[in-house]
Design a protein around this nucleic acid. Sequence first.
DNA 1: TTTTGAGTTGTTCGA
DNA 2: GTCGAACAACTCAAA
Length: 468
Amino acid sequence: MTARSIVWLRNDLRITDNPALSAAAGRGGQVLALYIHEQSHGVRPIGGATRWWLHHSLVALGTELGARGITLAVHEGNSQSVIEGLADQSGADAVFWNRRYAPGERTVDEEIKASLRERGLLVESFGANVLVEPWTIATGQGRPYSVYAPFWKALKAREVERPRGRPEARRAIEPTEVDADYTAPRWAAKLGSHWQIGEAAAHQALARFLDEKLEDYPPGRDIPASDATSRLSPHLRFGEISARQIWHAAMAMAHAEPERAGFIDKFLSELAWRDFNYHQLYHRHDISSTSMQGKYEAMQWRQAADDLAAWQRGQTGLPIVDAGMREMWETGFMQNRVRMLTASLLTKNLLIDWRDGEQWFWDCLVDADVANNAGNWQWIAGSGLDASPYFRIFNPVTQGEKFDPDGSYVRRWVPELARMPDKWIHRPAEAPPDVLSAAGVMIGRDYPAPVVDLRASRARALDAAAAL
DNA sequence: TTTTGAGTTGTTCGA
DNA sequence: GTCGAACAACTCAAA
């Protein structure tokens, strides 16, 4: 009897280093690849920008799989119903997938695994999407790390599994159902001019980063106007490239060119933050809805719909914050330091619940995943493990003058300030009238006054944290 | 077993 | 202008 295997793809939209795909192909017989736009209890619906990215990534993957004789079927609905229905229709005798780590997702997967096994199918899951499995790294007391530095040290001492190769071509099962009707929001179409999507593009981005950008990374990653970062995050989000592929490519370079090892260590320590966040996701109940430090559940957040809307639209009157919010709206991406600045303004100066900001980023960022988005928001808000100390409140004027000294980032994304001189571009409301008129800016007409007084709101945030 | 040092990303104030 | 201290509390790991 011919083997018939289903590969359930989720956050692993790649051909190489895909153990579930390799396991299916390795059995011989026929292979059907499946993606489900999932409507399952416990699985968070994805945001608009990620939905757009996902669509294009699936198109790219379908083409690559098709060239290898594997059909990609895209369905929508409850995962268990879809898989069991498809298994019945196709006569599949095995189902494979790579693991995911959110508690709700794991529950869904465990239930499906048990149910399929009860029906007599072979079911196997694999580690593929983090550097090390969360349950295999622990402190001396056997607990999960809650501080990054010792986590990073422990991770470096570990062997990160080598990426697998590429499965051989197989003949496809004829799909019984074609693409589910599933579209990204209309606004997301504008993101297309900023990204190349898919596994090949992911590897090109990595190669370009390692070959051309590595030396600029440690200083440049803090400069929002520079192009010093890898921009791999949305590729990682859907697993177009795996973290361990990046790890080993960088390690190979560090070995071959020891003079670059320092830069590579810095880069990989950032990649390891992704694992740190995924491990917290695994060990915790729900990091996108619950503060990891329990006392933050008592925080008296302000209800301020107008302030939230001004922040979302990039109309806070604080130029580098507005630049970041508009960059994200236009491109689906925001430079890392600006993510911190914008999040700090919302959670500290405006004292608005981090969940409101997390949800907005969730919808706007092409790289939004629960682990990193919620983990980073909680880090800024102060509610996370190993979080930023409560007194670390970014001043968007100071930060703008430090990290965007010539205002080129602001000029790009806040064009109404393009003619402001460097000296005043980060604090236009304080500029003398003749400077403003020469730049063609009237505060309140062309660009808003700051939505909040930075000094007073800083004191308010410190008081609110102390009250906890 | 106890102690000690160090810990992603900042700001303000006063010398 | 530059520089160090203060702004907590706690975890982890090494001594």
